[in-house]
């Protein structure tokens, strides 16, 4: 009996001197592994043009059917993406998403990526449906030099 108690306490004492794994969120944040899959983001080219061409492959591959893409045709005066097609509406329901990352894998132009961001909270459920405006990386935050400029597509 005493033996068992001592054994248990030994473990307790052992752990007491280790660094706790609890993070003091939100002051402290966890560093996510490089391939973590969090909230989606739509990428741009260096020149600011959207990468997404609205092909809809992400929505076709999505196992939980949470991506809506409505394509449209680019006009010369109002070009959103290289090529003829762009996504007029791009919407992801993050509630339904299972963060499998298939969309990222299916995308032929590396337009959609899953970022490390995992902090989902909002005051209404609607806010979990992300539209293109919120998904697109903002022009100022986009990584410098990391992206190629669009190739001319004939």
């Amino acid at each position: 009996m005493v033996k068992e108690i001592l054994k248990g306490l030994a473990l307790t004492f052992q752990q007491m001197w280790k660094k706790p794994i609890t993070l003091q969120y939100p002051e402290e944040r966890k560093l996510m592994p490089a391939r973590a899959r969090g909230r989606h983001q739509l990428q741009r080219y260096e020149v600011g043009m959207e990468r997404c061409i609205g092909c809809g492959l992400c929505s076709a591959v999505c196992p939980s059917n949470c991506i809506t893409v409505v394509p449209a045709e680019n006009a010369e005066e109002d070009r959103h993406s290289p090529g003829e097609r762009y996504s007029q509406i791009y919407r992801i329901n993050e509630f339904r998403c299972i963060f499998c990352g298939y969309c990222q894998e299916a995308c032929p132009v590396d337009a959609i990526i899953l970022t490390e961001e995992y902090e989902f909270s909002a005051y209404s459920r609607d806010e979990f449906v992300y539209d293109k405006e919120r998904l697109l990386v903002s022009l100022s935050r986009q990584p410098q030099g990391a992206d190629r400029s669009p190739e001319p597509i004939s």
Binding site: I53, G83, E84, R85, P108, I153
Partner: peptide
């Protein structure tokens, strides 16, 4: 023939 099937509407 361009290899842009994701853009092309016949895809």
């Amino acid at each position: 023939h361009p290899l842009d099937c994701p853009i092309c509407d016949k895809g």
